[in-house]
Design a protein around this nucleic acid. Structure first.
Lengths: 94, 94
DNA sequence: ATATTTTGGTTTATATTATAAACTACTTTA
DNA sequence: TAAAGTAGTTTATAATATAAACCAAAATAT
């Protein structure tokens, strides 16, 4: 009846990050922080988890002398997101 | 952009319980346990939280000599559920 | 030139959650 | 009457989410 909700994705901030990356396909730390309205600390932790799960790639570089962390959703991430959404539908009967 | 996801509802089991109660409008402990495929301990804790939040009512009675715990969604619970779903849509762009 | 603030983060500590395991109380069945 | 089943609750623990504290370098003000 109710399928498991992938616990990596069933987290407000991680879900928001994935949601942004699904549309933007690439976003830096500052953009994610702003769009998700999160604190830097929380965001830092959560994108690490998404990376460990293989759902996003993190690329670190410099831009205008400042460090810049770029996140990009992976194919696996896309699939996981879609599966999450489809599982969710049973709960909220959208 | 992303609204808060009500933390009372943003829980797999509590969401499943609410989902069942939204359709069944009344269900006993055993039915909820079976439909949500949860352990009794977890279910017991989570329906207490839903009750404390005012999202369900819990009525205890006996049926065929056995204790029976009946749960019913409240008007507040309905509203909270609907708000949760509508907030969720921004995340999963359903 | 040097102190202060800002940018862009990470690490650590803590409170909250989810969950399973252990327990209670009673009933039915062998 | 002992064992197994029903219907839960309580307690302990592991996992999570989050904020606070911290770090390093760059920009800006004094």
């Amino acid at each position: 009846m109710f399928k498991e909700l992938n616990p990596i994705l069933h987290s407000q901030l991680r879900l928001a990050v994935m949601s942004v990356l699904k549309n933007e396909q690439e976003a830096d730390f500052s953009l994610l922080k702003q769009k998700t309205n999160s604190t830097a600390g929380n965001l830092s932790v959560q994108i690490q988890k998404l990376k460990e799960a293989g759902y996003i790639e993190i690329k670190k570089q410099f831009k205008d002398n400042y460090p810049q962390t770029i996140c990009k959703i992976t194919r696996n991430g896309m699939t996981a997101f879609e599966n999450y959404v489809s599982a969710l539908k049973a709960y909220v009967n959208v």
